[in-house]
Amino acid sequence: MGVGVLALQGDVREHLVVLRALGAEPRLVRTAADLAACTALVLPGGESTTMARLIEAFQLEPPLRAAIAAGLACLSTCAGTILLARTIEDGLPGQLALGVLDIAVRRNAFGPQRESFEAELAVPAVGSEPVPVAFIRAPTIEAVGPGVEVLATHLGKPAAIRQGRHLALTFHPEITGDSRLHALFLRGLGPTPEGGG
């Protein structure tokens, strides 16, 4: 099992720390060759427009699409979730949306940084204790398709969703260091994925 972290830009280090604590040996993914060694990919938080520009400039979109079509499982936080969405409601003209997840997202939905917040999020799929998380200039998920399971909501909108082996979050558990959502993702990669969508 090769878990990669897309390392074009963003909070890569925080994801590496959580993944290592769970016993994974994550590798950095910046090129198509890096990606070829991965069976799972974490798309971190950061600026979605920056990552999209780099994916385009370095021709990473075709290998990403091909790898996902061939079964690469994705865990995404914040900007990563925007990259994987089917629709970006307020994207820049032509902004890359890989269309892996059947969701529509709105970027930076809470306003400027002064509105960013920490919260305790109930996520029954990982246990009864709420997960401490950070929403940082976070997007919202405005619509989900029929194959999408909502694992947690904030203010009535989905904040964590699962679609097949993909897990997508609008927030950052890696900033608070809670590893349970990463563990859920890694468990889903096994030969007998639990849950499923």
Binding site: G10, C78, S116, A119, I136, A152, L155
Partner: peptide, 24 residues
């Protein structure tokens, strides 16, 4: 699915430092 418990904290050191982590 379940909700947040409604208690949110803005402007904490973690949130302020967190945005910089995203810019890395």
């Amino acid at each position: 699915s379940a909700e947040t418990n409604g208690h949110v904290v803005t402007g904490s050191p973690r949130i302020k430092r967190g945005l910089a982590e995203m810019l890395k």
